[in-house]
Write a protein that binds this DNA or RNA. Structure first.
Lengths: 222, 222
DNA sequence: CAGAAAAGAGAGCAGTGCTCTTGACGAGCG
DNA sequence: CGCTCGTCAAGAGCACTGCTCTCTTTTCTG
């Protein structure tokens, strides 16, 4: 990349950046379903038809936003890992995910909420999505769950355990299942809070989240 | 209910039922955002304007579907509790939730996925939503988490603990946080599986879910 | 049976994604 | 230098959407 190609390509890249920026503000206000190509075009002062030169379809624009979102979360997740002990890194990761979700709720919903109907994520979203998971994999490497929590999983799921281990290398069989469960608990907690499942029964959301994640750290034996 | 009122009211109730039934099939195919009053009206052979006599707005139709969904899940959750031991009841509840989600994915997404933009759930959805939670509250009543998992929560969140205890009566302070965390883990696991976060790395989804929920049962000390 | 209430039909408004065609501009080549 | 060709913008148009308003038809009730 770089190495200023033709002037045309430079202005085109700038247009794409401006479109995604505007789209992100619309996303933050109206959500994925309310995102409108025409509205973005209007805000840019161009005809509704012209925007299709940059993003052929609405799904393409959505894909760009999803990629940006995964990368922003991946950045935050990696930046949170400042050489602490495993528990500290786990808590930092949890709060990085939660902070991202609270700061950019519609982007979080785009990544981890219900899939947009009719939209099929292309292959190249997988790698950016994996970045955050890999941060977790490095934390979980030295987890030692206490005996009652860990249990040798049924033999039938051996191949799946190996597949899951590809994101958390060197993890023992009895640890894989608790590790996956804690990972889903993190996103379940964030989604519950963000999507309003707690209603208004909870006021100290951050503290309760923190206590839950600490409890999971003990569950994982970090 | 009952006591056949006027014949008009009978046919009206039947119309409402038919509309929601058709809407449910459309929801299953196109998701909440793709739900179209006009399409439902078309399938019923009536003018697009006439359907507003039964559901004034699209949100009203959505509310009816959400209420039906919560009640269907609540039915399944309650039916799953056939006087077993706590662990058995917990696992039965988990699988009831997962089975519901797999059987009616778009309805699950409507209940527990990203909120529909611009839609605000009315008050009367709270009670049906609580039904499933209350089933969980009865299970958790005799949880005894092992010492490393439980921990006395910070004093500041005392009022929140009381609020949370309203759905799980008689639960000790150290148990509330793990109980909430396990509850979010359940829905996190179901959402991850349903929303495709696992990609195609996992084949024995049911077995892995089951192993995770068993692990949570030990975490909770059921 | 007559009047009132409910239900349906149709037109219309403002918005959407997306396509096709037409016209303008600029960069590179003979 | 002149000319071609790819890129871009714009406009019109299609098939949708939710929702409102008016008008007519049906149906129930006093």
């Amino acid at each position: 990349m770089s190495a200023a190609k033709t002037a045309r390509e430079r202005v085109r890249a700038e247009m794409v950046r401006e479109i995604t920026d505007i789209a992100r503000t619309h996303l933050a206000r109206d959500g994925a379903a309310g995102l409108s190509l025409r509205a973005v075009a209007r805000e840019m002062g161009m005809a509704s038809s012209a925007i299709h030169r940059y993003f052929a379809t609405k799904d393409d624009l959505l894909t760009a936003l999803i990629l940006d979102g995964y990368n922003a979360l991946g950045d935050a997740a990696e930046a949170s890992q400042q050489g602490q002990d495993p528990t500290g890194r786990w808590l930092a990761l949890c709060h990085a995910v939660r902070d991202f979700a609270l700061a950019r709720p519609h982007e979080y919903a785009l990544l981890y909420g219900s899939p947009v109907p009719g939209y099929q994520a292309p292959r190249d979203t997988v790698a950016p999505a994996m970045r955050t998971t890999l941060v977790y994999g490095r934390i979980i490497a030295d987890a030692r769950p206490v005996s009652p929590v860990a249990a040798t999983p049924p033999a039938a799921i051996g191949p799946d355990l190996d597949a899951l281990r590809s994101v958390m290398p060197g993890v023992a069989d009895e640890v894989v299942i608790p590790a996956v469960t804690a990972w889903t608990a993190l996103f379940g907690a964030v989604s519950f809070e963000l999507f309003g499942q707690f209603g208004d029964t909870i006021t100290h959301r951050r503290e309760i989240f923190d206590a839950g994640m600490r409890s999971l750290a003990r569950y994982l034996g970090l």
